[in-house]
């Protein structure tokens, strides 16, 4: 209890013990351990989440180092989930980290995921096809916080069984054929906001259901677009 108190004392001073306790008993699936996944995972660990299941199939490449905060030059060519697991576990050791080196597009993806329980999903993926596949994991009592980034802008929303779906919002969108340009600062910004919305969901206070929050660093604007679920 002493360790709990010391490490999370600043959190508890702000959001109180009840909410800290909820976090310690919660688990989140982080899909995609790229830019957004790294920020979301690190914040959730520092917030005191009980368990993180992290998913990615890729290895760390040089262009990842401008924004993927869990990795350094020493991690090149290592699997992202393995390097992330080591770094996240070293922060305080109180969060259980489960690394899954699999692709969302793998045939056995859903079968593998049925072995794990989680309260919510962080969509930190980098393509629409995988995002649409990921939201199929949603159960009646789980939520998905979606984030996307490009250049110096990005967007966030919370998806539930009852809300509008990613497949509805992004109908017709195709995966980028070329290299996507992304600044480090928008990744940190959107990742932080995603983590905040995940905490809000865990506490039963989601702010972005049927709302798309668009963040633009070009003019420091935050805009909420009301989304309408399809009938």
């Amino acid at each position: 209890m002493k360790i709990f108190d010391d490490i999370f004392s600043r959190n508890v001073a702000f959001w109180k013990e009840k909410k800290q306790s909820i976090l310690s008993e919660s688990s989140i699936l982080v899909a995609g351990m790229g830019g957004l996944g790294c920020v979301v995972a690190e914040i959730l660990v520092r917030a005191g989440i009980g368990k993180l299941i992290i998913i990615d199939k890729k290895k760390i490449d040089k262009p990842d180092l401008n924004r993927q905060i869990l990795y350094t030059i020493d991690n090149l060519n290592q699997y992202k989930v393995e390097a992330a697991c080591r770094k996240l576990s070293s922060i305080h050791g109180l969060t259980t980290i489960i690394p899954l080196n699999i692709s969302i597009q793998a045939k056995n993806f859903y079968k593998i995921l049925t072995q794990y329980q989680f309260d919510g999903i962080a969509d930190c993926l980098d393509n629409y096809e995988s995002r649409f596949a990921l939201e199929k994991l949603l159960l009646s009592d789980t939520f998905l916080v979606h984030g996307g980034v490009q250049e110096d802008y990005g967007q966030i929303t919370t998806i539930t069984r009852e809300s509008i779906r990613l497949n509805d919002i992004y109908r017709g969108m195709e995966n980028a054929k070329n290299f996507i340009s992304i600044s480090p600062q928008i990744v940190f910004c959107i990742g932080s906001l995603m983590a905040d919305e995940i905490l809000k969901n865990l506490w039963g206070e989601p702010a972005l259901i049927n709302q798309l929050l668009v963040v633009e660093l070009s003019d420091f604007s935050f805009s909420k677009i009301k989304l309408s679920p399809l009938l």
Binding site: I164, D168, I169, Y170, R171, G172, M173, E174, A176, N210, L212, I225, K226, L227, S228, L230
Partner: peptide, 15 residues
């Protein structure tokens, strides 16, 4: 064009 999105009152016009 793929990559572009138009919403009318929060609904994608493709719907």
């Amino acid at each position: 064009i793929p990559g572009t999105m138009i919403l009318v009152n929060g609904k994608n016009i493709l719907h």
